[in-house]
Amino acid sequence: MDNRIFEIRWHGRGGQGAKTAALLFGDAALSTGKYIQAFPEYGPERMGAPVQSFNRISSEPIRLHSGIENPDVVLVLDVTLIGQVDVTKGLDEGKGVLIVNTPLTAEEMKKKLGYDGKVCTVDASAIATDTIGKNIPNTPMIGALVKVTGILGIDELLEDTKIKLEKKFRNRPEIVEGNLKAIERAYNEVKGV
């Protein structure tokens, strides 16, 4: 029944922007005419503790309000979570995709995980440090997500992000520029696609 609905799980640590990533991606998908959900998993608020957030994307209205158990894509914002959190939980080895923020290649990451399904890697932290000047991996990860899944067009995503960031950072064009570059670079540099 829910095969029309595309489901995403984000892994990060409190304060790293996993929630913001889901919100940003949901908002961008909405702008392209999709129906969306974005929701975090809430517990006590603790900086550094492992956290998750989620997206549902569909071309039909979404009625489901249960948790996401079998995501189509899982994104890992912080590679130190691997080994501490079961990031491949519920992921279908045949159809699912795991995208990890790491300088390692997809093959190296697969070996480290002992996971046979599809794995893609992107050095989102390095990209963010280069382009935004800070290790904020969530915007480049959206670029990688879009490349791997094709769920949105990269031009649509860049256009929408530009409009939103320009509103938010009216007097700081370097932030807008940096984020757009980060998304584009991650889109081009993601490995294992």
């Binding site: 889901a22 919100l23 949901g26 908002d27 909405l30 129906y35 969306i36 959900q37 974005a38 929701f39 975090p40 809430y42 209205p61 979404i62 309000h65």
Partner: peptide, 12 residues
């Protein structure tokens, strides 16, 4: 609304 399920869920 249902707490978190709707209150913190971004929807269309």
């Amino acid at each position: 609304t249902d707490g978190f399920i709707l209150s913190h869920c971004l929807e269309t």
